[in-house]
């Protein structure tokens, strides 16, 4: 729209085809439409403007007006949302995104006081993707798996050998057998063509990665009331939209992988499924300790996470 009076820059870090960038482009279209062309959003995908490490600071200082950041990858910095990072077993991005949204709404954490939250969402639950099938925890024992550094302990507690390596080294490592598999949300099977190397999945719903989209506070304050209303109204709506989109995207990726690489999907035996929360409980306890030490009601936060998980998993079955 030629007569746009307000220009907003929106920085994102992963490559353009990934879901955080897809939601960004969609949000841009929607905002431009709902404000009747009053607002024009310029997007910068793929770390061209800000990268995951300086995204938050970049938005606070105004390098970009809006930025999307992965909170999970900066441990210690976002202690409240870290509760959602814990292995509580979310079964969908929809439920996890809405739970994250409500949690942040409730506690209004001070780490966000310098920015305006535009929306919050998570990636779909992380599952095992392996070269050889994992049908029980026994199969997992001693298996080298690529995990994000933040989730290494989860795999260790389940008996695997977590290998933290940069995302960029993962395809190489998988291809050559440096690692025997990887653990993340499953859209990567298609998006990064990982199904070519790991044609087995085991459904474990271990963790989710939490994202937030934040806006520079001064910029937000400078916006007219009607634009503010459009953006505010979209906050929760967008958490749901993104969760919904990426959940469907995973289904698509699985379907594609089944057709193209004969992907096999496994479940752990029921007894082991019951065992997993026990194995992972120490990690959640540790989180509660950490949060309490940081002056937060850790116990209550985790209780809320479980309650929200139950609520939204029932609602969006």
């Amino acid at each position: 729209p030629a007569q746009a009076q307000i220009k907003l820059t929106y920085a994102n870090f992963p490559p353009a085809p990934t879901f955080p960038c897809v939601q960004m482009e969609e949000w841009k279209k929607e905002v431009e439409k709902r404000t009747g062309g009053k607002v024009a959003v310029q997007t910068f995908p793929g770390s061209t403007l800000l990268n995951p490490r300086n995204m938050f600071e970049g938005v606070i200082s105004g390098t970009a007006d809006i930025g999307c950041l992965a909170m999970s990858y900066q441990p210690g910095r976002f202690p409240v949302s870290e509760a959602v990072d814990q292995p509580v077993g979310f079964s969908s991005a929809k439920a996890a995104s809405l739970a994250l949204y409500d949690l942040i709404e409730k506690y209004n954490p001070k780490e966000f006081e310098k920015v305006k939250i535009i929306t919050l969402f998570t990636c779909p639950p992380a599952n095992l993707m392996t070269k050889t099938s994992v049908k029980s925890l026994k199969d997992l024992k001693g298996m080298e798996l690529r995990v994000p550094g933040t989730a290494a302990d989860i795999i260790k507690n389940l008996g695997g050998i977590p290998i933290a390596m940069p995302q960029s080294d993962t395809p190489e490592a998988l291809q050559k057998g440096v690692v025997k598999g990887h653990v993340s949300s499953m859209e990567v099977l298609k998006d990064f063509n990982y199904a070519a190397y790991t044609a087995n999945t085991t459904m474990t719903n271990l963790w989710v990665v939490t994202f937030s989209v934040v806006m520079n506070k001064e910029k937000w304050d400078s916006l007219p009331a009607d634009v503010k209303k459009v953006i505010d109204d979209m906050r929760k709506e967008w958490a749901l939209w993104t969760g919904n989109y990426v959940d469907n995207h995973v289904l698509e990726a699985l379907k594609w992988s089944k057709e193209k690489y004969n992907l096999q999907m496994f479940e752990l035996p029921a007894a082991e499924k019951a065992e997993i929360p026990k194995l992972l409980k120490p990690l959640i306890d540790k989180y509660v300790e950490r949060a309490t030490a940081a002056g937060l009601p850790g116990e209550q936060i985790i209780k809320d996470v479980y309650a929200l998980k139950e609520k939204y998993e029932k609602q969006y079955k």
């Binding site: 990858y73 210690g76 910095r77 933040t150 933290a164």
Partner: peptide, 9 residues
């Protein structure tokens, strides 16, 4: 901010 490294914390 209390941020620690990803793996070694």
């Amino acid at each position: 901010s209390g941020e620690v490294s990803e793996t070694l914390k």
